[in-house]
């Protein structure tokens, strides 16, 4: 088997990020959108880890731990907003928040 290089991991990461972006753009379900954002954070983490291995240093691993902590904060606040949205409008469609639109 041909050896795997940094470019392979970069393509995989780009693919995962694009799938997450498609989820954010194309879905109208607040929970699915949150999960797509997690997918994008995960793609960035994969590239951090691959680049850390390429350079032989661990700074990327530290950044991944920080990104995971930020993703946990984002999930907690985002899910609280989802619960509030459901309570206010009875759906998890983010378009229900367009009441202020003229």
């Amino acid at each position: 088997m041909t050896p795997v290089t940094l470019a392979h991991y970069a393509y995989l990461s780009a693919g995962l990020f694009s799938v997450g972006l498609a989820g954010v753009l194309l879905r109208r379900n607040f929970l699915t959108i949150l999960m797509s954002v997690e997918l994008m954070a995960n793609a960035a983490n994969l590239l951090f880890i691959a680049a850390a291995r390429q350079h032989g240093g661990e700074a990327g691993h530290v950044l991944v731990l920080l990104v995971i902590a930020v993703a946990a904060c984002e999930a907690a606040v985002g899910l609280a907003i989802a619960v509030g949205l459901y309570r206010a409008s009875g759906t998890v469609n983010p378009n229900a928040l367009a009441e202020l639109k003229g």
């Binding site: 940094l6 470019a7 693919g15």
Partner: peptide, 15 residues
């Protein structure tokens, strides 16, 4: 996706 892959098309040396 195409923009990212064009950006990432680098030849990395063996780690």
């Amino acid at each position: 996706f195409l923009g990212l892959t064009a950006f990432f098309a680098v030849d990395a040396p063996t780690p």
